[in-house]
Amino acid sequence: MKTAHFILIFCLLALASPFAYASDPSPLQDFCVAINDPKDAVFVNGKFCKDPKLARAQDFYYSGLNIPRNTSNPVGSTVTPVNVAQIPGLNTLGISLVRIDYAPNGGLNPLILTLVPPKS
């Protein structure tokens, strides 16, 4: 019986310990604005990074998600992707999104395929 009490008290203390922490690992840098020119750039996450001192607000902005797209196609929907190709500041942040416009009379959910080129 004493063993059961000991195990119970030990478990309660372990759960209430102020030394238990959990967090995501910190990224290597706050942001890495992607550029296509490798001159004087650092290669991170499949893209070259611009010098952080040269980052501008436009590197983190995309206009166009508020514009409805044409849905007069066989599936009745259109996908507008937003990823590092549209917003270079999203590089290394793990963020991407899409806007899907559906035709008002029964548009279908489109199949979205991402084609990854083979590594050489």
Rank of each mutant, 00 (worst) to 15 (best):
N45W: 05
S17G: 08
D24A: 08
I95A: 07
K119C: 12
F31W: 05
R56K: 10
P18N: 12
A22T: 11
T78N: 15
K39E: 15
F48V: 01
D24N: 06
T114F: 06
N83C: 08
A85Y: 10
S23F: 14
D59L: 00
H5M: 14
I100Q: 11
S77H: 09
P68E: 15
P18H: 12
P104L: 03
V79C: 04
L12G: 15
R56C: 05
V33T: 01
P104A: 02
L54W: 01
S23N: 15
I9K: 05
K53D: 04
N109Y: 12
T114R: 05
Q86E: 15
K2L: 15
A22L: 10
Y61R: 13
N66D: 13
I35W: 02
V116G: 01
G46R: 06
P18W: 10
M1N: 14
V75F: 01
C49P: 00
L65W: 04
Q86W: 03
D30S: 13
P88L: 10
N66L: 08
Q29V: 10
A55C: 06
G94E: 13
V75P: 00
P27L: 13
M1H: 11
A57R: 11
Y62Q: 07
G46H: 07
K2E: 15
G46M: 12
V33S: 03
I100K: 06
L113V: 08
L8T: 10
D30P: 04
L12D: 10
C49N: 01
N105M: 05
L54P: 01
L65N: 07
C49F: 04
C11D: 09
A34D: 05
T92D: 14
G94P: 12
K50F: 01
A34P: 08
G89H: 03
L108R: 10
L115E: 01
V116I: 08
L90D: 10
P52D: 04
G64A: 09
S77E: 09
S63T: 11
V79A: 04
T80C: 03
L8H: 05
L15P: 01
V44H: 09
F10R: 12
A20C: 14
